[in-house]
Design a protein around this nucleic acid. Structure first.
Lengths: 203, 203, 203, 203
DNA sequence: AATGAATGAGCTTTCATTCAT
DNA sequence: AATGAATGAAAGCTCATTCAT
């Protein structure tokens, strides 16, 4: 009888590989990240990676899709909340920061790919950006229609919000902040943003 | 008899090389950018590059320093203006957009290196960020002291402003805008930002 | 309780593996033939092959021995016939063609290994060639002594005959002939050959 | 000034590489032949080969085209001779043998590729075979029309002749003959062949 | 000063073979 | 007995850098 490997086992090992890959790519970038090193860090043989992924490129694609989904979920949950948009923005900033803290390597890879140059490999993240900006812009547009926020350009606003969020992933590295400090900063970010879009009559 | 090459000639050719390098790196990234292709685009021989730069890495370093200075000048000139901070922010956004439009390749390389992963090569841009954030934060702090703007965290505010500015390098890819449209978007950005930091008593 | 596997069962499964191997090797050659693909085509697991053969190399060896024996039998039966040598040659050509048609993959592998380069793996076929040429040469020598054919160099004649026969394995590929046409061609081959060695006084 | 390398220099070094490749491929076959070893035998660095050939596959293609041309020249010169066809066939056999002796590695590669299995890489030689068989068949057809030889199937006859010639590349390995002996054998081959196709009225 | 031919380290990927189940 | 997941040696190829000219 063959060794029995369930689909769950496969997914588990895929995750181990993805984690190792995220670590390496976050450290030295996709091009320099070495399949051999990734395998070592994943505690498996070099060839084993190719039983789980078609190529090095596919590892990155799955990685990016995975983190893209994570981010989308955070955004979705935040902006679908009941309550004021001030509150929603605070929540968005905070949960995004927590995500970045929990999955630091993944976020680094994501941001790196997003702002990275136009290699074919950047395409998936570019698509992600367009989609996510659109969703966010739509939410802003509805909010503006209802007088909950005030904006003349929901699309660009959405891009700005995403840019702010993603730039905060850089914070820990640049400022060497402990995590609770960074969370506090995210609150400030939400505050500035809210100031920029709140309806004039709000206090 | 050796050909006489003045320092000005050297600087000129260095610039030609840097332009070619910026083009290639903006296109496919530092790691994939090919010294041979860069030499061809610069119209010189492959080995000649090494008479002007120690290594491929040095080319990038000089490139990044160069664009870093360009950005600093734009920022400096904008925030040192006379007039309201609302005006200064508008000017900053606009001139930055013009810079991004005039030196698109350079800016792409800059943003890519800034958000890129932690390779040794990223260090120069990280230093640039710390310095520039500090300068900007200092200006915001002074402005806050004078009641020209309202902020509780000048440092983070500075980071937010830079994040907004740099995010606009993505605009062409995301929105496919003609340049005058993009400039208009920058005005919107300044508007939101100003809304977020203007003193409460301002109109 | 171990499954009981008789020697006959073993031989049967060995044959299945050999067939699959012949198919793959005939298609893309020994070096590129993939153990995994062979196993799939044989309808067994990858590791199972190693219960029946020591290595990939051994599979080829057995394959070559097997087809070598097949050919020898055809040759033996033809030249041991009663009747004129003209008849025997015709029969040889025809039955060889039928063999090539019935076991096309096996013959392709055989010819490929025979004319292939001097890898250790070619040794078995080289031995086969020496032996078979010798047998055929011996028969020609006896026939010459009895005046049934006329030749000054039975050994080289034997080599020529084998070369002609084997070259006909190329026929389908070169001429895209249907099988009965190819058989007709084999008759022509026998005719030319007979013309070259028949005693002068024969009609 | 760059190092000046003339086209003649290039061709010379290409030839050195081809010779080394022919040696290795004749020894262990195309698939096992190692670019590294070939480079070593050619006395150059590993990467240098790729300055002269696009890929390992191209090396083989050029190699095969080159030997194909050599063979074609020998055939052409022989069958265009004045004199009887008996003489032409003798000449053909002899000059072919000399070719095989002068360029043993090249001929081994040629024959190996010709009888090798249907890898994409075999296509060039298959084309060569079709063309060359056609040419030869055409010559035989004309000769038959003029009553110089007697054959009912020029095409198959041409294939037979080529098969005989190529089979003699195996001679050294099978018989371990010194070269003059091998040439003598080629005379025998021509003799048998001539016997098989000479017009009935010839002596 | 300028060149581009030459180099070899280092990369991704394949695949015969092993072995726990 | 049978399996297929796991392995790592080995291969082709790219490219930053050197250096003879």
């Amino acid at each position: 009888m063959p060794k029995i490997v369930t689909e769950a086992d496969r997914q588990l090992k895929r995750q181990v590989i993805l984690d190792a890959a995220a670590h390496e790519i976050a450290r030295i970038g996709y091009d320099r990240a070495n399949i051999n090193t990734i395998a070592e860090q994943a505690g498996i043989g070099r060839g084993t990676i190719y039983l789980y992924f078609k190529s090095k490129e596919e590892v990155l694609e799955v990685l990016l899709d995975s983190v893209g989904q994570l981010i989308n979920e955070v955004i979705q949950q935040s902006i679908e909340q009941h309550g004021t948009w001030q509150y929603r923005l605070e929540l968005l900033a905070q949960t995004f920061m927590e995500l970045a803290s929990d999955h630091r390597d993944y976020l680094r890879v994501h941001v790196s790919a997003l702002h990275g140059v136009n290699r074919p490999i950047g395409a998936p993240v570019a698509r992600w950006l367009k989609t996510t900006v659109s969703h966010l812009a739509f939410a802003f547009e509805r909010a503006a229609e209802r007088g909950q926020i005030r904006t003349s350009d929901p699309f660009t606003l959405a891009l700005l919000v995403l840019a702010m969020l993603e730039s905060f992933v850089l914070l820990p590295e640049v400022l060497d902040l402990p995590i609770h400090e960074a969370v506090a900063r995210s609150a400030f970010m939400a505050e500035v943003l809210w100031g920029g879009i709140r309806p004039l009559h709000t206090p």
